[in-house]
Design a protein around this nucleic acid. Structure first.
Length: 284
DNA sequence: CCTCATTCCTGCGGGC
DNA sequence: TGCCCGCAGGAATGAG
């Protein structure tokens, strides 16, 4: 599942293989993949053709490619999206949704997405943050991230701490896997109330988020292939470093207590019942 | 404004 | 063996 570290790995691939090149052809093979571009496929293509890609940017789980026109090509990988840099003679993937070709020939850029939760769109306001991403908060690895504002924002929420981490407006880039990992590192139960959460706990949690995101980016970097912009949907290289996610019943790496799994927000939360004690007044 | 449930989608694997 | 159903889950949407 692409969260911030996986998306950052893709961004680095785009920076290397796509920035500086001019788009000359756009093929939309599935309309749902550009559903967030409300003007449709023809408009989407017209805004891209002839444009040079000037940079590869990221905020949270969103990517964007600023264009010479001042617009930006915005991408979100959703659950199963991949941006692949491949030579045109390679056979189309089963779930190929959008293809971009460039003035200098190979390689082309392909958006492949089995479940079509992700998608592409052209948004105005490319050089800075595209307008369509105005509601996405800075992620914890952004140099301009404001730690104090995060702590106070968290303490103003009337919800559970994991729900707050998954909300992309307070901060961004954290998904179900890294939320559970960070909460385990910080020894905080996922249903602990955010309201007036002690500031030291907030800071410990923020540090844990940074720790796990940074470590995962390093792991993601090791799997980067020279030819592909690698979105490894299986993320096999992360599995070995996960402490709680997907490990129900296995012993906690710190204390040996069997890990638990709870249903929450329609998905699973994994946690250690000893290190992350259930709060007296949980907020689900 | 704030919080939260619902909905979108497809492949896989467990159970019978 | 084959079918059904649950599960994986990010973020837009609308209800309250």
């Amino acid at each position: 599942m692409p969260e911030l570290p996986e998306v950052e790995t893709v961004r680095r691939g785009l920076e290397r293989w796509v920035v500086g090149r001019e788009i000359v052809a756009v093929q939309v093979l599935h309309p749902r993949a550009i559903r967030r571009h409300e003007a449709g496929a023809d408009d989407f293509a017209a805004l891209l053709i002839g444009q040079q890609v000037e940079a590869a940017m990221r905020r949270g789980k969103f990517l964007w490619l600023p264009l010479a026109s001042g617009d930006a090509l915005v991408a979100h990988l959703g659950m199963s999206g991949q941006l692949l840099v491949e030579n045109a003679d390679l056979p189309d993937e089963k779930h190929l949704r959008v293809r971009l070709r460039f003035a200098d020939g190979d390689p082309e850029l392909r958006f492949v997405d089995q479940r079509t939760f992700g998608g592409l769109a052209v948004s105005a306001g490319g050089a800075a943050l595209p307008g369509s991403l105005a509601h996405i908060g800075r992620d914890p690895l952004d140099p301009e991230f404001d730690d104090d504002a995060f702590v106070e924002g968290l303490r103003r929420r009337r919800t559970g701490v994991k729900r707050a981490l998954l909300d992309q407006t307070l901060t961004s880039g954290i998904g179900n896997i890294y939320a559970d990992e960070a909460l385990w590192i910080a020894r905080v139960h996922w249903a602990r109330a955010t309201e007036n959460l002690p500031r030291p706990v907030c800071r410990t949690l923020l540090a844990a988020v940074r720790e796990v995101l940074t470590a995962a980016i390093e792991a993601g970097g090791t799997s980067f292939d020279a030819l592909y912009v690698n979105v490894n949907g299986q993320s096999g290289y992360f599995d070995r470093s996960l402490h709680v996610y997907g490990r129900e019943g296995e012993p906690c790496d710190r204390c040996g207590t069997p890990l638990r799994r709870s249903k929450f927000m329609g998905r699973s939360s994994y946690w250690c019942p000893k290190d992350q004690p259930q709060p007296r007044h949980p907020h689900y």
